[in-house]
Simulated assay, not measured.
Amino acid sequence: MKNISFEWTSVKITFVLALNVLISIMYWFAVVKYKETADEIANSYHSRDMILINAIKTTDSNVPEIKILKYQFDYIQKVKKTNLLLAHRFSSYGYAFTVFLCIASVVGGILGFLLLKSGWENSKNFYLKASFLIAFACSTLCGIFPSVLSTKENAASNLSKYNIYNGIQVDIYNIVTDMEGYLKRNTKGSLDSLHIKIFNVSKAIKENQGVDYNFDLTKIPKEIKPLN
């Protein structure tokens, strides 16, 4: 009898572990599939960036102001890659959490309905109970994590900064190619205006530098917060 009991216990443990592994694989699969689409979007952004990068490279000038502007352009290019990467990651995880919340909620609802027929105490079906608890835990975690990790806000904020940097780079390109004629006029007034433009670019970089990687632990329901 002890061997039979141990055998059933091993089967139950294996079932629970297998179910958790399957859920983890499905979650990662959802992240990967979304990431593939996001990678295509990121590649289109990169192609767009290359147009400006190549255009800036073709402007050969020894003017100190132009050199400064090129340094600013290169600095922005490196910084905004991090913003795009974080927007990419947070949106991927947020998508996967949302998909699994929907799936776990539906599955948990069906399993809960089946359990109601016999009642929790009266039900002898371990696998039904275990599946319900795992589905309930998944729906709870997938409902909490997006808020705690601020996936939507972090993705939107980093993408917004990325787009702001794009706009600054376009402004730099316009100045470097002397579209407003500051260097062509080459007067004290025009050069002063050019210096103001460079200062404004530096100011915009300072105002938007940094990445958003915020957490909000207040979003954790009080009922499941650990005791302090």
Score class of each variant (00 low, 15 high):
194 L>S: 05
77 Q>E: 15
10 S>Q: 11
177 T>H: 03
53 I>D: 06
218 T>Y: 03
61 S>F: 03
6 F>H: 07
135 A>K: 03
2 K>M: 14
14 T>Y: 09
199 F>N: 14
111 L>V: 05
15 F>P: 02
128 L>T: 09
51 I>N: 07
195 H>Y: 10
130 A>C: 04
139 S>E: 05
182 Y>G: 00
2 K>W: 10
146 P>A: 01
128 L>F: 10
166 N>D: 05
14 T>L: 09
42 A>F: 08
118 S>F: 02
227 L>A: 08
27 Y>R: 04
63 V>K: 00
44 S>A: 14
12 K>G: 07
114 L>M: 14
13 I>E: 14
226 P>R: 04
160 S>D: 06
137 A>T: 05
224 I>E: 07
72 Q>W: 00
146 P>D: 07
124 K>I: 04
73 F>C: 07
129 K>R: 13
159 L>C: 05
212 D>I: 14
167 G>Q: 06
95 Y>T: 07
102 C>K: 13
94 G>W: 14
64 P>F: 05
213 Y>A: 10
16 V>Q: 11
69 L>N: 00
36 E>S: 15
136 F>E: 06
38 A>D: 08
62 N>C: 10
188 K>P: 05
2 K>V: 10
169 Q>V: 02
98 T>E: 14
4 I>S: 13
78 K>G: 07
121 E>F: 13
181 G>V: 00
92 S>I: 03
60 D>R: 06
159 L>P: 04
129 K>T: 02
190 S>I: 02
161 K>Q: 11
120 W>H: 05
208 N>M: 07
5 S>C: 03
105 S>L: 11
98 T>L: 13
110 I>L: 15
206 K>A: 15
43 N>A: 10
45 Y>M: 14
174 N>R: 10
184 K>G: 00
124 K>Y: 13
110 I>G: 02
152 K>N: 06
127 Y>I: 07
182 Y>P: 01
92 S>V: 06
217 L>W: 12
59 T>M: 02
182 Y>W: 01
189 G>H: 07
62 N>W: 03
166 N>K: 05
197 K>A: 13
65 E>A: 05
179 M>N: 11
56 I>M: 13
26 M>D: 03
112 G>M: 11
147 S>Y: 02
44 S>D: 08
209 Q>H: 06
125 N>Y: 09
31 V>A: 09
31 V>Q: 10
4 I>A: 14
82 T>N: 11
113 F>R: 01
153 E>S: 08
152 K>V: 02
77 Q>F: 06
206 K>M: 12
222 K>N: 08
200 N>C: 09
156 A>N: 01
23 I>Q: 09
83 N>W: 15
185 R>G: 00
149 L>G: 02
172 I>F: 01
196 I>D: 08
218 T>E: 10
170 V>Y: 04
175 I>C: 00
150 S>Q: 15
181 G>W: 00
122 N>D: 13
58 T>A: 11
51 I>H: 08
192 D>M: 05
156 A>W: 01
221 P>L: 08
138 C>M: 12
137 A>N: 08
28 W>T: 15
150 S>N: 10
103 I>V: 15
29 F>T: 15
81 K>W: 03
212 D>T: 15
13 I>T: 14
175 I>R: 00
100 F>L: 15
210 G>R: 03
166 N>L: 07
46 H>M: 14
214 N>Q: 14
185 R>A: 03
